[in-house]
Structure formats: structure tokens, C-alpha cells
Nucleic acid binder design. Structure first.
Length: 261
DNA sequence: ATGGTTGCATGGCAA
């Protein structure tokens, strides 16, 4: 099974790029974040025509929003509200064989890494705390966790560890917090299993760079984690960096794995 | 130190 996670940054604006991704990868399951669309305007029929008959969508107007597309049927699992908000940041399904697939869009957290003065950073930290509890509670289950976690946990997940230590997405409180989520839930970081540090690995490059590829100031914000006991089912994977260079790209590149499920 | 770009929705916020 080829599984992809992608922060698409508007599913309606980037439907053509999603089609290109499908045609190039022949993915079986696609998890999207930041669809920025209510369910009623989600391109359900277009995606069915592309082979994704089965869709789980949790959208909202203008912001956030997550979806899971699949060629094969799945069962819905209850989606969770974190940090007391119904803001479309989690959706989950059960795939064949009873494997749970959880798709997350963790809050970005604003610009100032101080919860006392930045409510958005406080929200991110609360989300992370509740994610830790959730992660621990489900330890041992057959589950996959993907999404835009908006944290680059390792020094080699950013272009400059030193220069980003006080930049939201790579501050110690965030990286320690995400590493704790990984640890207490007994997860395997699939992309780092395949491409161990210290090799640099990024999935996001800012729109604000005049030449994203040349400056290559990336961060690894998008992740695929497998329950540790499933790690031997990991066959292959990587970051589809090419997609960042497509016409009218998302600022995130898709991340993929091949699993023997 | 600052500003740089994009999407939604059509002003300004979020990223």
C-alpha cells in the first residue's frame, strides 16, 4: 500500500496538482491537510473519478481541514477535538486488517515562541500536551499517524539548527514535546528509519524565499509514524520534493511510504 | 533587524 500525506494548502486551488500526484505515484491512500474548504464544496466527484471512491472529509470554511482518500473501503473512526476546539485538525479511519490511520494538522503556533504573549503558541503547546496523552493511551495498537505536525524535531530536520532554535517549529519545548509524543506512543518515525540523521531531510520550504530550491532553507514538518511493531512492514518512502517545484505549488511537499499491509 | 509570499475572501488574518 502506497500512503501519501500532503499539506495541500487549498484542495480546490490545487486539484490539478493532486491529479498529477495521483497519476505519478499511483497512491492507494492520500491524507490531506489544510484543505481550506467546507465539506459541501470538497471536490468529491472529481476525486472519485480519479479512483478515490472512498473519502473521509472534515472541512471548515477558509482554514485548516483534513481529509483521507482511499481506493479501498475503510471504516470511520471518531475524530478528535484537541485543545477544546472543533477546528478540523484530526480525522481517522480504520483500514483493512484493522489498522488505524490518523491524519493530523497541528497548529502552526504563530510567530512568537512564548505562550504568555502569543495565544497561538499556547494553543499549539496545549494541542501537543493532549496529543501526548492520546499517543500514550493508544500504545500497542496497530496504527499509523501522519500529517503536518508543524514541528521539525531533529537538528537535521532544519537547514540551520542553531538559527532556528528560537523560531516556532524548532524550539526546544516543541521538539522535546514531539519527541515525547513519539516515545510514549512507541512510534517509529518512518522517514527517519529510511533516511537517518545526520542526512538533511525537509518537507516544507517557505513561499517567501525568492528561490526556494537554491537557498534550500527547508524544514521537516510533515511526518509518517508507524506503530513500532509495524516497522518491519515499511518497504520504502521519501519526500516528493519535485512537487514543490510544480506550477502553483503548495509550500509543503508530499511525503510517502510503501507498506506491506 | 527586516521583509519577503500565498490563500481565503475581498480586509486582514493565518501560515
Amino acid at each position: 500500500m502506497k500512503l501519501i500525506t500532503w499539506n495541500i494548502n487549498s484542495v480546490r486551488l490545487r486539484l490539478a496538482q493532486l491529479q498529477k500526484l495521483i497519476e505519478q505515484t499511483q497512491a492507494d491512500v492520500i491524507c490531506l491537510q489544510e484543505i481550506k474548504a467546507e465539506n459541501k464544496v470538497f471536490p468529491t466527484d472529481e476525486l472519485k473519478a480519479l479512483g478515490f471512491e472512498h473519502q473521509a472529509v472534515r472541512g471548515m470554511k477558509a482554514y485548516n481541514g483534513v481529509a483521507i482518500l482511499s481506493r479501498q473501503p475503510f471504516k470511520m473512526i471518531e475524530s478528535i477535538n484537541f485543545a477544546g476546539r472543533d477546528d478540523a485538525r484530526h480525522i481517522a479511519v480504520e483500514l483493512k486488517g484493522g489498522v488505524e490511520l490518523h491524519n493530523f494538522y497541528v497548529p502552526a503556533g504563530g510567530d512568537i515562541p512564548d505562550p504568555a504573549v502569543n495565544e497561538k503558541f499556547a494553543h499549539k503547546l496545549q494541542f501537543l500536551n493532549e496529543l501526548t496523552t492520546w499517543s500514550q493511551a493508544g500504545k500497542g495498537r496497530s496504527r499509523i499517524m501522519v500529517g503536518d505536525l508543524n514541528i521539525a524535531p531533529l537538528p537535521d530536520d532544519v537547514w540551520s539548527h542553531k538559527q532556528l532554535l528560537d523560531v516556532v517549529s524548532h524550539t526546544p519545548i516543541e521538539t522535546d514535546g514531539l519527541n515525547k509524543v513519539l516515545e510514549v506512543g512507541a512510534w517509529c518515525d518512518a522517514l527517519r528509519q529510511l533516511t537517518p540523521a545526520p542526512e538533511k531531510l525537509y518537507s516544507w520550504w517557505s513561499y517567501r524565499s525568492p528561490d526556494w530550491e537554491k537557498s534550500d532553507r527547508g524544514r521537516r514538518l510533515d511526518h509518517i509514524w508507524l506503530a513500532e511493531h509495524m516497522s518491519r512492514q515499511l518497504q520504502d518512502g521519501g519526500v516528493l520534493k519535485d512537487a514543490r517545484g510544480w506550477q502553483q505549488p503548495s509550500d509543503h511537499a508530499p511525503v510517502w511510504v510503501d507498506l506491506s499491509l
